[in-house]
Every structure is written in C-alpha cells, then in structure tokens.
Computed example of a mutant assay.
Amino acid sequence: MDFTDAQIDRYARHLVLDEIGEEGQARLVQAKVLVIGAGGLGSPLLLYLASAGVGTLGVIDDDRVDLSNLQRQVIHTTADIDKAKTESAAEHLRALNPEVTLNTHDARLSAANAAEIIAQYDLVADGSDSFATRYLVNDACHLVGRPLVSASIMRFDGQLATFRSHLGHGPDGRQNPCYRCLYGEQPEAGRDSCADVGVLAMLPGVMGSLQAAEVVKEILGMGDSMAGRLLLYDALATRFQTITLPADPDCPLCGTAPRIRALDPELYGEAPACRS
C-alpha cells in the first residue's frame, strides 16, 4: 500500500525497523482485532494497538465508567464517569489516531453472540475479568478459527498466553493447547475478580502492554510466539517466569475426542461484565 506523508511521519519508528518496515506496517493497517473488555487490560491494549496503526479495532463491553475504575483503567478520565466504556474508549482512541476504524459493541459477550462477533476479526485479545467469559472466548475462538491472546491480572500477579488450538499442531510438531488445557473444567463462580481481591494500579499496564506486543507479533508473524507457553509476572518480586503449556489430550474442546462442538449457554452460565 502507499502511505501518505502523515502516515510516514506517524509510523516512522516502525518503518525503520527491519522486522516491520513498510510491508509490516501495511499488514497492521489491514488487520482487524477484537478486544474483550475496555477496562484495566483493555486500556493499554487498545491505546497501543491504535497508536501502532492496527487498522480496525473492535471493543466489546457492556459496563459503564465508574470512579473506582480510574485507579487503573487509564483510557478513561473523570469526565467519562457514567459513560459506556465502549463510547469513552472510542472517543480517546479517535483522538489518538483518527485513521483507525473503531467498532464498538456495547453488549455483554454471550454464547448467543460470541461466534458472530469474533468471526468479523482476524484475532482476539481477551482482557476480561471472569472465568466464565474467558472460557467462552476461548471456545468461540477455537470453533471460529481465530488466534487468541489472553492476559489476566489479580492482586500483584499477571499471566499471558497465546492460544492457536484451532490450528492443531504448531511448527515444533506439538499440539497447540487451548485455555481449557491450562485450567481444566470451569471453576464455580466465586471471588475471582479484581473487585473482590484488589489489583495493583500498574499491573494491568504491564500485562496489557505485553499483550499488545504479542498481538502485533501474531499479526506480523514476528519473533517467538507465546503459543504453547505461559508467562507469569510477579510484581512484588519483579520476576518473570515462562513455562511450557502442554495440550491436554482429554480436553473437551481441542483434545483427541472433542465434545464441545458448539457454544452451549449452559457451559458458561451468565458471563459477567468485563470489569478488570
């Protein structure tokens, strides 16, 4: 594609990178990414993807901006309190990069709408704050055939992984795992959100930025993917650890005898709003 003078100025620091250059930047401009949640993780994720020039960004969230969000959800401001998070996020992203196409889904992701929404995008980045939503997103991405970059935060700890279970085996010959391979059966609903146990203000900034980097790597096919690996971050110890994430042959979604072939609402219960 031909870049305008303004685009050359805007993306100059990408264009001089041999690993990205004009071809890579063109792929970013043509990419379509869906972000689940405009909260703690979604804030830096959306800001960096927009600034990097990802051409189409979708964001789904049915929550509204609350004063308690502003401790960590840096895409919103005090003036945005009571606005829909999708509307608030879109306003700030348009101000940052008006060239990006923004699709807002002011709705709760559910078994009824997940496959249809996800199918509109090339890749999904999950920044939700409940197991029900994470399992739903994982299953929908596998069934629709989309890569998933997933991050989670709680208290002082963060996790990050990329899932490509829909592709079967990876380049190393190993089966690509899914989120279910990591956590097994969906836990019962409990005190598993940041609202219940708290979160360090800066933690979503760290993990959301790492998540944005992995999204760009997946779009460009650049570097070593996090597929098949799990990154653990301990903010109190300032320690990163990466572990191998094996596929589960008995996984009901991606195993040798899959039992989940459609998004059944009974599998997930009512997925809460994205409140990280």
Rank of each mutant, 00 (worst) to 15 (best):
T77K: 13
L45R: 06
V33G: 01
V74T: 13
E91R: 07
T77H: 15
I36K: 07
M207S: 06
P246A: 08
R94A: 03
G168F: 14
P147W: 03
A271D: 00
A140I: 04
R94K: 12
G223N: 13
A111R: 09
R155N: 04
D122K: 04
D106C: 04
A12S: 14
A161D: 10
H76R: 06
G198A: 14
D196F: 08
L109N: 06
L17P: 04
A195F: 03
S130L: 13
N176R: 15
C194K: 09
V149N: 10
D18E: 04
G39T: 07
D192C: 14
S193M: 06
S150V: 07
A79M: 07
P249T: 00
V149T: 04
V65T: 12
A115H: 03
A227M: 05
P249E: 06
E99C: 05
A84Y: 14
H92P: 11
L236F: 13
I8L: 15
K32S: 13
G42K: 13
A227Q: 04
G168Y: 12
I20M: 12
F240S: 03
L34W: 06
D82Q: 11
R155P: 10
H92A: 11
P252Q: 02
H76Y: 07
Y135W: 11
V137H: 12
M226T: 03
A50V: 00
D62M: 13
E87S: 13
G42I: 11
L46H: 02
A161C: 15
A114N: 04
G55V: 09
Y48E: 01
D129E: 06
D82G: 04
P171A: 14
L267A: 10
V35Q: 03
I20W: 13
I153Y: 01
A111D: 00
S209V: 00
D192M: 15
D122V: 05
L67G: 00
S88C: 05
N113C: 04
N138L: 02
P246G: 01
D224Q: 15
T244E: 14
P258T: 11
A90T: 01
G205S: 09
I243W: 09
D139V: 10
A84V: 00
R275A: 07
K32N: 02
E185I: 13
G228K: 12
H142L: 06
L34N: 01
G205Q: 09
S276I: 11
M1H: 13
E188M: 14
V59N: 07
Q175G: 06
E188I: 13
Y48F: 09
C254Q: 14
P147C: 06
F131D: 00
G158N: 02
L236Q: 10
D196Q: 09
F163A: 00
Q30A: 15
L210S: 00
C181P: 02
